[in-house]
Amino acid sequence: MSGWFRLTLGLLAVVVGAAWTVQGLGYVEDSIMAGHRVWALLGPLLALAGLALLWLGVRARNRG
């Protein structure tokens, strides 16, 4: 995977993970995922995976 692809995928994962977390915690009421605890748990996990991808993407960009 190239550095740009990792950066893009990591940023997308962080944003989606944050959205899932906010919806799972019930801050967004007009959502199917609102108030469901599973999304409040999966969101931070996805965001952490996104941060790892961002870190790997930055390392790949700095090498090449």
Rank of each mutant, 00 (worst) to 15 (best):
W39L: 09
R37L: 09
G3M: 01
L46V: 15
L11Y: 04
Y27K: 00
V16R: 01
L42P: 11
A18P: 06
V58L: 14
A47N: 02
R63W: 03
E29L: 01
G57E: 07
W20L: 15
F5N: 07
V16D: 08
G17T: 05
A49M: 14
G57R: 03
W55Q: 06
A49E: 14
Y27W: 09
L42S: 14
G50C: 11
A34Y: 04
Y27G: 02
L56T: 05
A60N: 01
L54M: 10
G57H: 10
V14T: 06
V38R: 14
Q23T: 03
W4C: 01
A18I: 15
G64W: 07
G64T: 12
M1V: 13
W39T: 03
L48F: 15
R63H: 09
L12N: 02
L53V: 04
R37G: 03
R63G: 14
R37N: 10
Q23E: 13
A60H: 01
G50L: 13
L46Q: 07
L54Y: 00
G43V: 13
G3Q: 04
G3A: 10
G64K: 12
V58S: 10
G24E: 04
V28R: 01
M1H: 04
E29K: 00
L45H: 07
G64Q: 13
A18L: 14
L51T: 07
A49Q: 15
T21E: 11
G17M: 06
